[in-house]
């Protein structure tokens, strides 16, 4: 096991690097930090780039293959960038019964992209997802981690506007 080349050479922000340093100490086994680390790294970098995988593997003493094996299992983790705001439309049964497909169609129409598409300006990406645990408030979506529930196709322009403004105001997150 080679020690990490340099503590200062992290590709993550100092805050996230510090969070990871603490995270690996939390568990009886260091490796338990792997999934949270990948998700948090993705939140910051946008996706699991080769460099992210290399650093996480290094921090946990795993092979990059091992990290990829695990990462590719989980549907929230991605190896390619998404839009700044990733719109995830649940179309599973409870949402479907209450118009999720109309909602998804409307998003496609408004954004001009389909499933897993990214708008040319990079502000939005669209994804049809499985149940997000908001069945009683269907149809529901998540924009990044924010829930929006009890929607109708007509709610789409308002939601997009809200995020467009956020994108314009602070350049993103």
């Amino acid at each position: 096991m080679t020690p990490r080349e340099s503590e200062t050479m992290s590709i993550f922000s100092p805050a996230l690097a510090a969070r990871f340093d603490a995270l690996v100490e939390k568990y009886p086994v260091k490796r338990s930090a792997l999934i949270p680390m990948m998700l948090y790294a993705q939140d910051e970098i946008g996706y699991l780039s080769d460099a992210v995988i290399a650093e996480i593997a290094d921090r946990l003493g795993l092979t990059e293959l091992d990290v990829r094996n695990v990462a590719s299992y989980y549907s929230m983790l991605r190896f390619k960038p998404a839009g700044r705001f990733n719109i995830q439309v649940c179309t599973n049964i409870s949402c479907m019964l209450r118009g999720a497909y109309d909602l998804f169609d409307r998003f496609q129409e408004e954004l001009g992209v389909g499933h897993k598409g990214i708008t040319p300006d990079g502000v939005f990406s669209l994804e049809e997802v499985e149940c997000i645990g908001a069945c009683c408030w269907a149809p529901a979506i998540q924009v990044n981690y924010d829930f929006h529930d009890e929607l109708a196709a007509d709610s789409v322009p308002g939601i997009l506007q809200q995020y467009r403004e956020r994108a314009a105001a602070n350049g993103g997150r």
Partner: peptide, 9 residues
């Protein structure tokens, strides 16, 4: 050697 893994699901 651990050169092979399972990916995706």
């Amino acid at each position: 050697v651990w050169a092979l893994g399972v990916q995706n699901r």
